[in-house]
Design a protein around this nucleic acid. Structure first.
Lengths: 134, 134
DNA sequence: CTAAACTTTGACATCAATGTGAAGGTCAAG
DNA sequence: CTTGACCTTCACATTGATGTCAAAGTTTAG
């Protein structure tokens, strides 16, 4: 598939798709005319990358991890250096604490909303908007 | 406490403490000479803010959330307008999806690490570093 | 009193993630 | 062939979170 379709399907601007490729987070073949050509799996790949980036992982790490996909079993143990494994383990810890932090914040906001007596907006209440005149 | 001490205790550069204040994420009194004066609780506040920022929350959102703390009981219902409640509910959604995203990323990294057979670094294994000669 | 260690504000630099637009090649429809 | 919707690269602008530096006032140690 060409970049426009990938962009529509992932809702990620083409600008960003080219950027991710530049950063080694996404790859593509080229058609005879120079257009990028993506395999079906690119959709998932883009979604994965987006998730990792928005989780604050350094792109350098992401690209390293991704660069190893497909490498399996024994290969992997040899390819994945101790150092890389350690940085990833660090990231894992960081992710855990971010999750904990956000979870606390979520509970704070949730608790606050509950106490506001406007609790009815919690959930999918935005759908109901306009049904309740001020 | 003055900015230098807060900086030492939180290991956040003074530059950033002033920036957070500018962004409405932190507040301070002023001493007679114009120096910032922080209450004890500022330490926790800074740590909270750091956590939220590093989780990728927009500072605008953080400042709204923070602006609510301390408002209680009857005050709340009056203070918290319908609109504000709605935007907080939106933020709640944002938090939820952020958490989901981080969780997926954590699982991705964890899964990758597991497959590397360097799995022993997962957890608190960094403590053990050096015990395992290469 | 002086020097060192704070503090203040303000300006400018950087980096990553994006937006935006120019200038041009490709392709399908009319 | 022309028009419009794609695609290409290149490049500059912007925003948020930071680093860094300068000029100047304050406070503390000697």
């Amino acid at each position: 598939m060409k970049i426009g379709e990938l962009s529509r399907r992932t809702r990620v601007p083409t600008r960003m798709l080219r950027y991710y490729e530049e950063q080694g987070l996404l790859s593509s073949e080229r058609l005879a005319n120079g257009y990028r050509d993506y395999p079906e799996g690119a959709v998932d790949q883009v979604e994965l990358v987006r998730g990792l980036i928005s989780s604050g992982l350094p792109t350098r790490l992401i690209s390293t991890m991704l660069g190893m996909e497909g490498v399996e079993g024994e290969e992997l143990a040899r390819t994945c250096s101790r150092n890389l494994a350690e940085s990833l383990a660090d990231e894992l810890d960081t992710l855990e604490s971010k999750i904990a932090c956000l979870t606390r914040s979520r509970d704070t906001v949730r608790g606050f909303l509950a106490r506001t007596r406007h609790a009815e907006v919690i959930g999918d209440a935005r759908l109901v908007l306009g049904e309740v005149p001020s």
